[in-house]
């Protein structure tokens, strides 16, 4: 059974179809890439999965359980975490508090304050931000704010992590480091579904890639297949 499965997922804005009858699946342990030109509906699809938006039709299942239209916090409790295209850290909280939020609220059940702090510090260590844990999040550089978002998402204890353009705006060195981070997350047994524009990154680490165009899925396959797919090449060159 796939970890995440969508059938006929559709969402309109006004009369415009942002996502139209899209079927998709993500198997446990995979890194799946989602690409497409600007306005293809990638972020909308992520918003539908994470509960920020409700689809007008179609169903989304997590491990066979229907999660369509649930509230964001419920979907988080069920095991899907996400990052945002434009970073959304809690700017005036400390770096540690940001991650602590994930530990304390990621699961509905109780917690132990000491253990929570330890867990938060573990995730900060994992993304390499231990040294700045007492800084306010707003004072971090872009790449570090992105890492903080990842740590906060991981702290909620997800089975599936949605990464929305994690590499956008980073320099080549930072992209390489971030790719390495994504691979390490997978080694933790966490499945990854990522929207990405940086082709080198997506071709390098994804097991499978899905292509959206004008809200519809136009191709799906291994990075190799996608790189040679005629329709995909036309869509990208025709831009």
């Amino acid at each position: 059974m796939p970890l995440l499965e969508g059938k006929g997922v559709t969402r309109y804005f006004g009369g415009l179809a942002a996502v139209q009858h899209v079927d998709f699946y993500v198997d446990p342990g995979e890194i799946v890439g989602l690409i497409g030109p600007n306005g293809a509906g990638k972020t909308t699809l992520f918003n539908l999965i994470s509960g920020a938006l409700v689809p007008q039709s179609g169903t989304i299942r997590l491990k066979g359980e229907n999660i369509t239209g649930l509230k964001p916090h419920v979907i988080c409790h069920k095991g899907i975490a996400r990052t945002f295209q434009l970073v959304r850290v809690f700017p005036n909280m400390s770096v540690l508090e940001n991650v602590l939020m994930g530990v304390l609220f990621g699961k509905p059940d109780g917690y132990d304050r000491k253990q929570a702090r330890k867990d938060a510090e573990k995730w900060l260590d994992f993304v390499g931000l231990s040294a700045v844990k007492d800084w306010p999040a707003r004072s971090l550089t872009l790449v570090n704010q992105k890492r903080l978002e990842v740590a906060r998402a991981l702290a909620t204890g997800p089975e599936l992590l949605l990464l929305d353009e994690l590499m956008a705006g980073l320099n080549p060195t930072e992209v390489a480091q971030t790719m390495e981070l994504v691979c390490r997350i997978r080694e933790q047994g966490i499945t990854i579904f990522m929207v990405e524009h940086v082709m080198k990154a997506i071709m390098g680490i994804c097991d499978r890639i899905m292509v959206l165009h004008h809200g519809e899925k136009i191709a799906e396959g291994t990075p190799q297949e996608i790189a040679n797919n005629r329709t995909v090449i036309e869509v990208y060159l025709g831009e």
């Binding site: 409790h77 945002f84 959304r88 809690f90 005036n92 609220f105």
Partner: peptide, 18 residues
């Protein structure tokens, strides 16, 4: 802490389980 997170960024707060 959760109330503060709402003031800081409500959307992010919702997505980490608040």
């Amino acid at each position: 802490l959760a109330l503060r997170s709402i003031g800081e960024c409500e959307e992010a707060a919702a997505h980490i389980g608040v």
